[in-house]
């Protein structure tokens, strides 16, 4: 039988929660079509309960991830880049499928995304040096300020940034010790889930990155009101959604950051948006 006659094995795109690939508990999926209207896939349509499960996983993973050494976190992120490099074609394929762009555009975006993981990996053990300080208080005290991870962060990546923006939002969030719940844009689930499949074979601990596909307009209110979510990167939301997020997020004073689109996303503000500064005083005497 000629290969062309072979029936393709179609892929099911699932949600990625706590290191596992699951269907939405709601049983829903949606049709993803390309620009010309051709059917691409049936990604899962994540629900509020899927979000809830993702938050539970991210919360549980936070302490271990935040308490890992910075060196260790750096190596885990670098390992992601290694695995991505090896499987970059899957991402390029997903990118072209979703966007309809040329191979070379897709490749450029994907490679930049991989490089972003390398960039972020290198930050893990420098962020405290760069953002921390010792403070010369007027008295017999040693006083220092050190950054700490915020906790659980939800990410709405900018769709136009493709794999690069997705990588930037996740890597800059988790390198400092946060755990992440990515709500992939409705129109860009394949890249996200492809990344999830690669992350699943990397050294990123379960629950550190969770990826939901579905409709961000549906999930945004649940993200905004969830009291176990500490921060939101809202760059992918529209103005209206952002306003709603800010209002509902005020309930537990979520740290909400909205970044402009960027050429390379290599901005330290993306890391500093989701850290807390802790200042410690100690008496100096004998």
């Amino acid at each position: 039988m000629a290969t062309s006659d072979r029936i393709d094995v179609k892929k099911t795109y699932k949600l990625y929660i706590n290191g596992e690939f699951v269907r939405s508990e709601s049983g829903r999926s949606y049709e993803l079509k390309n620009k010309t209207g051709k059917f691409i896939a049936n990604p899962a349509q994540g629900s509020r309960k899927d979000l809830r499960d993702a938050v539970t996983a991210a919360r549980a993973a936070h302490s271990g991830w935040a308490n890992a050494t910075a060196y260790n976190r750096g190596q885990v992120l670098y390992r992601v880049a290694e695995v991505l490099e090896q499987r970059k074609n899957e991402l390029i394929t997903a990118y072209t499928l979703e966007t309809g762009s040329t191979q070379s555009v897709a490749q450029k975006n994907v490679l930049a995304g991989i490089d972003y993981w390398v960039w972020a990996a290198g930050w893990s053990d420098k962020i405290a040096t760069v953002l921390g300080s010792t403070n010369p208080v007027a008295g017999p005290f040693y006083n220092f300020t050190a950054p700490e991870s915020l906790g659980v962060v939800a990410n709405f990546p900018i769709i136009s940034g493709g794999f690069l923006a997705l990588s930037a939002t996740i890597a800059s969030t988790i390198v400092t010790g946060n755990t992440s719940i990515v709500v992939a844009n409705e129109k860009s689930p394949l890249i996200a889930i492809t990344l999830a499949e690669i992350l699943a074979t990397s050294d990123v601990p379960n629950g550190v990155v969770n990826i939901l596909t579905g409709k961000d307009s549906e999930l945004q209110p649940w993200v905004a009101s969830h009291m176990e979510i500490d921060g939101v990167e809202a760059s992918g939301l529209n103005k209206k959604s952002l306003g709603e997020l800010k209002i509902a997020g005020a309930q537990n004073f979520k740290r909400i950051a909205y970044f402009k689109n960027s050429t390379d996303y290599k901005e330290i503000e993306r890391l500093s948006a989701f850290i807390e500064y802790k200042t410690v005083w100690h008496t100096v005497g004998y």
């Binding site: 300080s133 403070n135 010369p136 208080v137 007027a138 008295g139 005290f141 006083n143 300020t145 500490d230 537990n252 004073f253 807390e276 500064y277 802790k278 200042t279 410690v280 005083w281 100690h282 008496t283």
Partner: peptide, 24 residues
């Protein structure tokens, strides 16, 4: 989980020392 930790002292303030809170 607090923005200012005083050890063996309390309620000390200084303009050079960042002050502010975690969470709510």
């Amino acid at each position: 989980k607090a923005g200012v930790i005083w050890s063996n002292t309390f309620n000390k303030f200084d303009p050079t020392s960042p002050f502010g809170g975690y969470k709510e």
